[in-house]
Simulated assay, not measured.
Amino acid sequence: MDLLTHILDTVRLKSSLYCRSELGSPWGLHFLPQSCAVFHVLYAGNGCLRIQGDSALRPLHAGAVVLLPGGEEHFILETPDAPVFHNLRLDQWGDCALMRWSDRPTAVLLCGTFDFAHPEMFPLLKQLPDVLYIPYDEGSTLNRILALMAAEAEAARPAREIVLRRLADILFIQIIQRWVELEGINQCGWLGALHDPVIQEALRLIHTQPAHPWTVASLAQAVACSRSAFAERFSARVGEAPMTYLTRWRMQRATLLLREQPALQIAEVAAQVGYHSAAAFSKAFKREFGVAPRTYQH
């Protein structure tokens, strides 16, 4: 299993497509903030995006995908002065609603969310920009997924909701992959590091074996690299030192164990995240989160 698959399994991606809206000119939609990532696909028509509190307008063209990792309050407008339907929530019509706002639609908009059960364990989310814009590309795999989603959203077939959720899961991964292609590996932080075979392997070892007594030297040896060259390369690619990253991942893994396995003793949690002493683990945990693991657990 590759590292990104392992992390997506851990954070438990849950995707939802809430509505397919057919809009007639002039149109404008105001979306309230969400506690998860929000995506829109302007399947037909043209418009613009504006984030609440920011006067800048970002043009949107047919086939474009927009991802707001932080779920910020925002507007999608046909034109800057279009009349607006205010205070919309993506879940207010339930899953997979087909909204026909006009008998003569000039735009079709798909709206949904990407939610994570454990977002703190997904380093990529912290490194994404406020808005990801993926332009239409006829030959891309992403476009084929969008075409399937648009067709399924309009159909009235059994199990439509399940099909759309699975397609939306694929859409998230395709958006991220396409973003890396557009931005370039060196501009994509943690995700770009996955394209460096040495650092990818080091990250895989950290994520899949947090209980191992890793040091910079042992990680460097495991990926066949000198200690100094590895430490410099890891910091440049990931944005922090290997031991800092390791400690943070161990603490995040510990929070998952404490929440989901409350019967575990603190010493057992400590052992599973690489600490031989419950006291040392408790000290590191409190330094990271401001509370003792026992308090966090209850």
Rank of each mutant, 00 (worst) to 15 (best):
A292E: 13
N186D: 15
Q209D: 07
V131Y: 02
L23W: 01
R157I: 15
Q177Y: 11
W190Q: 03
I162C: 04
G192E: 03
L264I: 08
E181F: 04
L90S: 01
V66T: 14
Q34L: 09
L256D: 08
L4A: 12
T215K: 04
P80I: 11
E232Q: 11
P80G: 07
H118L: 15
Q209K: 13
W93D: 14
H74S: 02
R160V: 03
V41Q: 04
D103N: 15
V11E: 03
R20H: 10
E73L: 04
L246M: 09
A153N: 04
A279G: 10
A220H: 06
M1K: 09
D81C: 09
R157H: 12
K283M: 12
P242Q: 05
L148C: 09
R157M: 15
V131M: 07
H74E: 05
P197G: 01
A222C: 06
P135Y: 03
A263S: 14
S218H: 06
L68D: 00
A224Y: 10
V38K: 06
L67T: 03
R100M: 05
L205M: 07
Q209I: 03
N143R: 13
P129T: 02
G274V: 06
P213K: 08
I76M: 12
G28V: 04
G45T: 05
M1W: 06
N46F: 08
A37G: 12
L4W: 12
V108H: 03
V108S: 05
F39G: 05
I134W: 03
L148R: 12
P59A: 07
S226E: 11
A202Y: 00
A159K: 10
M149Y: 06
L29R: 13
L23M: 07
Q252I: 03
E138S: 14
E154R: 14
L13W: 05
A44H: 14
R259N: 13
L124Q: 08
I206T: 01
E73F: 01
P123C: 04
D103C: 14
A278M: 07
R237L: 02
F85V: 14
A280N: 13
A279F: 14
